[in-house]
Design a protein around this nucleic acid. Structure first.
Lengths: 314, 314
DNA sequence: TTGAAAGCGCTAACAT
DNA sequence: ATGTTAGCGCTTTCAA
């Protein structure tokens, strides 16, 4: 009836009735039932966002970018967390798709066959984010983690470091961290270098773990002259440890992290890093859904920020 | 029809038909339409979570607690971000309620009259979180920020500090930070102490801002002997600055933050703080919704963790 | 144990 | 400019 038209600003309704309806709606505290609306119109203003975790800063920043870009559109993000589990991802996607959302934004490019099938068959626009190393189902926006690892390795080698250690997370399902390490090792191998040592952690305060792992690896392999951390937080811990121990950074030992977190700006030295463009990825992904595009591919190309912890190339 | 019964594990269906339906559903990649289901059953497995921001670690941790507690239930969180704006809060709540969720979890106890009316009239279970200083609409789980401020002030005074500075965010709508400061100043006043100086910031890297503000306040009021920060991140920045400048912490100057963030564990000294119980708050709030309770009031009572930056009481 | 029928509260298309 | 009507795809109730 007319009420529906007013509340959706549609079609021709006289100013008089419009006002009357508005007043009545307000007085009654009427909130339309979108479930019925969605069923009738076959349109749902929800965007599903599926991410592996909320417990480090990276995914909240992506969410933040998505949420910001969606302000002013009728779209609303709905989030699901998978804890890096394929099974949970399938469950979450099933739930999400059962609401027939306007779009799905999902982290990563590796999904179980069941998950892929569900997404592809859903007919809903899909954006895979964070990573571009793989075969996209529809749209994709992210960076190449292999390339990130490779470029970092090349810069390190060019600066003359030779005894190189890697410190990362013990997460077989964090495919992006894995790809960075692969790209990193491959580039080292091309220069005839193999990793001098490596160290992995899981859980706990990343800053503290960074300290502990750095201490462990330096005690075990004292001649290491460079440490590549799979994220900035452990890198920051390592940096603080090195400075406290009086290591000459970046001459005795160089350091680099990954992500480009804001936190680094307040540290005693600027840790070398690479900005993964998390917020921008979120914004671009949301934009693809909001504008109804499909098959878009956006690869951001982050540059290594050398900060104060890699000495100049020579 | 029967299919519906199978997919929802309801009523008596023979094993034979059950199997047949399952097989067919799988083969077709069938995902039921929850919109229709929700409309027919008047039940929606969504929990709305309304928070002011995603850009510091505190709300993601709450979300994480909610999300974890909801695993294994049929419920799914839907999030909305208000950017500390009443207007945005109203808009987000309107959207949320139009989906007739199973519950609403909303940060804070201060809402516009319109928002309150919407929530109360919705008939949906409401949980206000983070703060307990106010008149709850339904359930509430959080801490008293006034008390947190007061207890911190009392501990500081008991340790003999007298020239006290406050550093915080320039956010008139962050009611929790405001209440902490109020409680803090009130307790000081009761001991005849007034704030020696104060400094506020907005935006940017909190760690860096902490350094800058600390430098500014110490230059302006050099005889300050204690700095109370409205969050751990700026506190950590202040701590790093003080250590670099060679201040004797906690004797020449004491420091305290707020939140109990994990990061503090990796710092050179443990900053005094108070754990706001963010994850636990999220879990408890989700539990209230999941179990269908109403009118629950849970007040957590965080203790001051003195760390290494407040000297012993005397 | 299965099937049939009547809505759920809207929107879209079609009258008026 | 406004009113009328037929679904949207399920769940619920009732009958078989």
């Amino acid at each position: 009836m007319t009420v529906s038209r007013v509340l959706r600003d549609r079609g021709d309704v006289s100013e008089a009735t419009r006002a009357k309806v508005r007043a009545a709606a307000r007085a009654l505290g009427y909130v339309p039932n979108r479930i019925a609306g969605a069923l009738a119109s076959q349109r749902v203003n929800l965007v599903s966002v599926v991410i592996p975790s909320l417990s480090n800063m990276v995914f909240p920043e992506v969410l933040s970018g998505i949420s910001d870009r969606l302000v002013g559109t009728p779209l609303q993000p709905v989030m699901g967390v998978t804890d890096y589990s394929d099974e949970r991802e399938e469950g979450v996607l099933y739930e999400m798709l059962s609401w027939r959302p306007s779009g799905v934004i999902v982290a990563g490019m590796e999904h179980s066959p069941a998950a892929r099938a569900m997404l592809v068959n859903s007919g809903v626009p899909i954006v895979e984010i964070m990573d571009v190393d793989g075969e996209p189902m529809d749209s994709v926006v992210g960076i190449s983690h292999r390339r990130a690892g490779r470029e970092t390795a090349e810069a390190i080698i060019a600066s003359g470091y030779r005894r190189i250690g890697f410190l990362g997370t013990k997460m077989p399902y964090d495919h992006r961290a894995r790809k960075r390490m692969e790209g990193f090792e491959k580039a080292l191998a091309e220069s005839g270098i193999t990793l001098a040592d490596r160290e992995f952690y899981s859980g706990g305060s990343a800053l503290l773990k960074g300290r502990e792992m750095t201490e462990a690896i330096m005690n075990r392999t004292p001649d290491i002259d460079f440490l590549y951390y799979s994220n900035d937080m452990i890198g920051a811990g390592g940096l603080l440890w090195c400075l406290e121990k009086g290591f000459d950074v970046p001459n005795r030992i160089g350091l680099a992290g990954f992500n480009g977190v804001e936190l680094l700006q307040g540290l005693p030295r600027r840790l070398a890093t690479m900005d993964a463009g998390r917020r921008e990825i979120g914004e671009k992904a949301a934009e693809i859904i909001a504008t109804g595009l499909s098959g878009v591919r956006i690869e951001l190309t982050p540059k290594l920020l050398r900060g104060d912890t890699i000495r100049p190339a020579r």
